[in-house]
Amino acid sequence: MNHLEEKYADEIQAILAKYPEEQKRAAVMPLLYLAQRETGYITRQSMNDIAQILELTPTEVASIVGFYTLYYDQPGGKYRIQVCTDLPCALRGAEEFLEKLCENLGIRVGETTPDGLVTVEKVMCLAGCDKAPLFQVQTGAGLEYHENQTVESALSYIDTLRKRER
């Protein structure tokens, strides 16, 4: 029983149950989300643990982490604020929005606030083009959308996060 199995025994069983016995490998993506829950990124240890659970090599698990953008092999801010600046949103002022937001936070795109609270990133279309500007907030625990945003609304949201963290 490795670290991950000890911690999430039941959840892992529930995940494995979704896929055919001999197709365990299919569980790698949900297990990676599980592994990312606390740390917000995938540690080398959890890659090994997942490999062991699914009878894969750590390399096979790692390439999944590398291919998909919602998995991280490096720690980031506790909250990843991901602003869509793809074409439809850009046509509705998303780029200015992002620029101003970063200005106010005193960081550049891709950077993390000094207190390690938020990392601001720009991402491709989030399927909310009619409610631009919008961003999603990703933490280890999950993902939520914030639509029809203004720089003000975004900043006050970040404030509430700050308070919550204190």
């Binding site: 074409l87 439809p88 491709m124 279309c125 399927a127 909310g128």
Partner: peptide, 11 residues
């Protein structure tokens, strides 16, 4: 998967 930029119907 609804990922085509400009698509938000399935959602």
């Amino acid at each position: 998967d609804e990922s085509e930029p400009g698509t938000f119907k399935d959602r």
